[in-house]
């Protein structure tokens, strides 16, 4: 276990460096965009003097590196700054949106796994059956449907024709259903296919034949010998998806007017609201690093071969 700890610490140090680089690159990209959030107020009725005054107020008249270190200094103290367009604390904005994104993207991730794993296992177990072909065909369909189109289709069917569900916004759990379906179906297809192919591969392993030969029951073999091994890459995928449960889904959130982080990020980028964009990307970057490490550690716990590899490295 101490090897694992050392591994995690090493990864964390590299991760901190990655986050630092991400913030620098992001800062540069935002600066490269023409204009700035004050200049971008395209209303011609605001005189240039007022614009200069506002720029000064927000510190945008300072050199870029001064702005960056100022931001870094504050973020290390946990201060994400203030949104230039709304004048609110960035952390307040994020806090207001996070529950909705967790609900939609997190919910979608969980549904995706709860449905995909048993279906994938069944499809692989009954390879070439009608059930298997149905699963394969439907995953291809869902995987190729763009989410904005699926969203529109679902609104047309469930809200306009059947009048069962609300079109958009957030008004109780019923308004969660359509965005959740739109977010889940395409990803579900990919997880399902991954599970299926992994299970198929493991089924061909010799130790599975051994397990059968030992006279273990079908169920026991499938769950404890096949699934446990097949799920390792699937688990890893889970951790790769995880940061996006906070980042939100921009397109889906826009179609369904969902008040999540994706929409916040989108409006912040288009109005060049630096502090908000930086804040959200910073959180996503940290989460990506952390969940990658968590993914590594958990797969190591599940798979002794990976543990051995880590030990070999250190």
């Amino acid at each position: 276990m101490s090897d694992l700890l050392e591994y995690a610490v090493r990864k964390l140090i590299i991760g901190a460096f990655v986050v630092f680089v991400v913030t620098v690159v992001l800062f540069c990209i935002m600066q490269l965009m023409p204009g700035d959030p004050i200049q971008l107020i395209s209303n011609p009725r605001i005189p240039p003097e007022k614009i200069a005054e506002l720029k000064k107020h927000w510190g945008l008249d300072k050199p870029v590196y001064v702005q960056y270190f100022y931001w870094l200094f504050h973020i290390l103290q946990g201060d994400f700054g203030t949104s230039i367009t709304t004048g609110q604390k960035v952390i307040t904005l994020i806090k207001a949106r996070l529950p909705y994104t967790l609900l939609l993207a997190g919910g979608s991730l969980i549904f995706q796994y709860i449905i995909a794993i048993p279906l994938g296992l069944m499809a692989a177990y009954k390879e070439h059956s009608i059930f298997d072909s149905m699963v394969v065909v439907s995953t291809i369909i869902f995987w190729s449907i763009p989410s904005f189109w699926l969203g529109i289709l679902l609104i047309l069917i469930f809200s306009l024709k059947l009048k069962l569900l609300p079109v958009s916004g957030y008004d109780g759990l019923s308004s969660l259903i359509l965005p959740l379906m739109t977010a889940t179906l395409p990803n579900l297809a990919s997880t399902l296919r991954l599970t299926r192919s992994e299970v198929l591969e493991v089924l061909r392993e010799k130790y599975v034949s051994t397990a059968y030969a030992k006279g273990l029951s079908e169920k026991r073999v499938l769950i404890f010998h096949v699934l446990r091994n097949a799920l390792i890459p699937v688990t890893l995928m889970f951790f790769l998806y995880l940061p996006w449960t906070v980042g939100g889904a921009v397109i889906i959130e826009t179609i369904f007017s969902w008040p999540g982080m994706g929409r916040l990020l989108w409006t912040a980028i288009s109005s060049q609201d630096f502090p908000v964009v930086q804040g959200i990307i910073f959180i996503i970057a940290i989460l990506t690093v952390v969940s990658n490490i968590a993914g590594d550690i958990i797969t190591a716990c599940l798979d002794p071969r990976i543990r051995a590899e880590i030990r070999g490295e250190s």
Binding site: S168, I255, R263
Partner: peptide, 16 residues
């Protein structure tokens, strides 16, 4: 007052 940026969704809100 709902903020509905997507044109299709806004029209659907009215039609529904």
């Amino acid at each position: 007052v709902k903020f509905v940026p997507d044109d299709f969704t806004r029209i659907s809100e009215l039609e529904s």
